[in-house]
């Protein structure tokens, strides 16, 4: 199957998402609750970006701003040059930025998997024979081809989420946003999803924005944005972000276990490197002897 994504990645890749000084509040009656305040960021094509933050920190608001679910009260969001406030291009935008949510059951629309996958492209007016190609390609991309004619309700949670991802992929998005898409899964299901998106990112150059509470999942990112009270308070590679233990505490997050232990041992005077993974910590201690 032909690959629709170019392998463009890394520092030379163009900026696919631009968020410029964006603010958004939720207003209901007299109550105003903060969404995001003065957020600016850019994401390059092919990047794997993770948004971290406690519940209510503004992560999901930011994600919804990226595909035009909500539009900024102040500032500007553009995706491949499309301003999210441009009503005339909203369908084009939604096709470019696909979102997968927490509960896979709420995202299934059809009783047979291939029809579920076809739903998105059909709405985009893609011709039937082209849809056939996309179904095969998308199911292959998430390793679910053999389930094509089955019913989604007999699948495990991890398999359902992979179908939900395939349904988005069939629209050939440039950006895939996963909003706590592994929260309801067991460790095996979570592993399946992380393996799938990491492969799509590396092999197909799909731009991925992952919102998660699992620090283990964040370690795999090219870049992490840490949010607190609607603002981005830290940005960088996983090692830079997690070694800033004060900012992690300020954001009410927890370090990965290995990071926490290596940080405490360093503080107590042991000369080992800051560790992100269990293996790094063990290696660091081993070299001491």
């Amino acid at each position: 199957m032909n690959d629709i994504y170019s392998p463009e990645r890394g520092a030379g890749a163009h900026e696919i998402i631009k968020v410029e000084n964006v603010s958004y509040d939720y207003v209901s009656g007299e109550q105003v609750s903060r969404g995001v305040r003065g957020v600016s960021l850019t994401v390059r094509k092919g990047e794997f970006v993770v948004l971290l933050g406690h519940n209510g920190s503004g992560k999901s608001t930011l994600a919804k701003l990226l595909n035009g679910f909500i539009v900024p009260a102040e500032g500007k969001v553009t995706v491949e040059g499309i301003d999210t406030r441009d009503d005339k291009r909203i369908y084009e935008l939604r096709a470019k930025v696909g979102m997968v949510f927490q509960n896979a059951d709420n995202q299934m629309v059809a009783s047979v998997i291939e029809n579920d996958i076809a739903f998105g492209p059909e709405n985009l007016g893609v011709p039937r024979d082209e849809i056939e190609k996309r179904i095969s390609w998308a199911l292959d991309a998430v390793n679910m081809s053999e389930h094509r004619r089955r019913s989604p309700n007999k699948l495990s949670g991890g398999q359902k989420q992979r179908i939900a991802i395939a349904a988005i992929l069939a629209m050939y998005p440039d950006v895939l946003i996963l909003d706590e898409s592994t929260a309801m899964l067991d460790p095996k299901g979570r592993g399946e999803i992380m393996e799938t998106i990491s492969r799509l990112n590396k092999e197909k150059g799909l731009t991925v924005i992952l919102i998660t509470h699992y620090m283990d999942e964040a370690i795999a990112a090219d870049r992490i944005f840490v949010m607190n009270e609607g603002r981005i308070i830290k940005e960088g590679k996983p090692r830079e972000v997690f070694s800033d233990t004060e900012k992690i505490a300020e954001a009410k997050l927890e370090l990965p276990v290995a990071s926490r232990i290596s940080a405490e041992l360093r503080r107590a005077g042991l000369d080992i490197p800051f560790a992100l993974t269990d293996e790094e910590l063990a290696e660091g201690l081993c070299r001491l002897k």
Partner: peptide, 28 residues
Amino acid sequence: PHSVHIKRLLAERGIELDTPALDADSLL
């Protein structure tokens, strides 16, 4: 659990610890 996993990785490298390491605090 992460703490037990770390204890096991250390044991493989010849570093034995006097704890079952059932949580991060006891490992630390």
